[in-house]
Design a protein around this nucleic acid. Structure first.
Length: 119
RNA sequence: CGAGGUGAACAGACGAUCGCGUGCCUGAUGGCAUGAGGAAAGUCCGGGCACCACAGGGCAAGGGUGCCGGCUAACGGCCGGUGGAGGCGACUCCAAGGAGAGUGCAACAGAAAUAAACCGCUGCUUUCGGGCAGUAAGGAUGGAAAGGCGAGGUAAGAGCUCACCCGGGAACCAGGUAACUGAUUCCUGCUGUAAACCCCACCCGGUGCAAGAUGCAAUGGAGGCAAGACGGCGGCCCGCCGCGUUCUCCGCAAUCGCUUGAGCCGUGCGGUAACGCACGGCCUGGAUAGAUGAUCGUCCAGUACAGAACCCGGCUUAUGGUCACGCUCGCUCC
RNA sequence: GGCUCCGUUGUCUAGAGGCCUAGGACGCGGCCCUCUCAAGGCUGAAACACGGGUUCGAAUCCCGUCGGAGCUG
């Protein structure tokens, strides 16, 4: 995922936490705030595990979100990993991300199935 | 075969597809190269580097280290020895100066804790209850009770005397660079604790890359100070300097710092070793919400602990299986 | 990333080498009182973060782990 799609500043994260609308499942929390640009941030706290585990969860989440990057509408997305995400497999996380995005009605077209889109 | 001891290297490999950071090339799509660790960790030490302070000096405080020699940029690290402790052994561990400079403390128990008379023993005396004197051989306590044992000696005893043993100190001799070891003579019998204060020897300015530098915007805002005050000086003193063109504090983002370094590999030489020297070769992360993931295939089918954030040298802690030993002990067989 | 500090019953704490078999308050359990509850009285359980070392003796002193706070852009 390229740099221009990433949510970077701490102030931007605070904005999403304050203004954003959230929904959650067992492993993840997704916050969405309206914005002109399309940016995604990932937040993995120390409760999830040590540095290796946190990095691994973050990379998997980034890989899970990547196929949906062209499908979703503009806005500021923040995905928070809950402690159970450390134990989850990649397949589980991918399904969770798709479920949460659908729940937030973030998709431009009503397709919801991953993998049949071009970048 | 079992139980140990010491040491060493490795940290899954290769090949596809998509994706990420950096560098180079390209007009561009893109292409090529490269991309976490032995502990990157804890932040326990030592440095480099940067800024601040510093004419210079003295005193004091605080902190650290502590057998000897060597290595190192330096170290509280490493190597080799000495001494002590543990183990049948291979071997391992040790903050290991000074208690004869001084002060403090040693609860409880015990008569008594650095100083001695509770019981006992002996002598004298007695109003027969005891009192006085001598005595550390015996008694129970305690971590520790005034060296141990034997003989002489005595009223009873006692290093009071003697022989042997144990410990300490001094002198001298031999070996060793030294710590120290061994021998002789003389003196002596002194509790422990310095990870209690302390003494001795040596070392230490402070802050830390969020250090700091550059450029852009702004040329700002707030406050102190008209004096024997304020600042440098963040402990004190001497001394020196500055002082109205003065002093202190306060902004956002970017770039640099940012990776070639006490570097790594190989060979040879010196040294018991740590290590050093010479020659040849190599370039090997630099992110800034923070780069290594996903799906497969093959192979010992099984990957533990774990993620750089300025950089090095150590220590400590976490952890997987493997190998070597002309290392040890035990059992069995030939 | 850097720096500083702290770990004692369920909670807040006292302690500063031996008085500690660790004290106090709130809380908890049991009994008494009451028609019942509260209050009150009696009583009980419950802790030195962990591992080594110094010392005759460690919650205390030293070292190392683990955990938790705070400051700093």
């Amino acid at each position: 995922m390229e740099r221009c799609y990433r949510l970077q500043k701490n102030r931007a994260f605070q904005y999403v936490y304050r203004k954003g609308h959230s929904c959650a499942c067992r492993n993840l929390v997704l916050l969405l705030a309206p914005g002109r640009e399309k940016k995604v941030g990932f937040s993995v706290s120390k409760k999830v595990g040590n540095a290796v585990t946190r990095n691994k969860v973050k990379r998997r989440l980034r890989e899970c979100f990547r196929p949906h990057l062209g499908d979703v509408k503009n806005g500021l997305y923040v995905i928070v990993a809950r402690p159970a995400a450390a134990e989850a497999t990649f397949d589980t996380l991918r399904k969770d991300v798709a479920y949460l995005l659908k729940k937030q009605q973030a998709f431009l077209h009503e397709q919801g199935t991953e993998g049949n889109r071009a970048r």
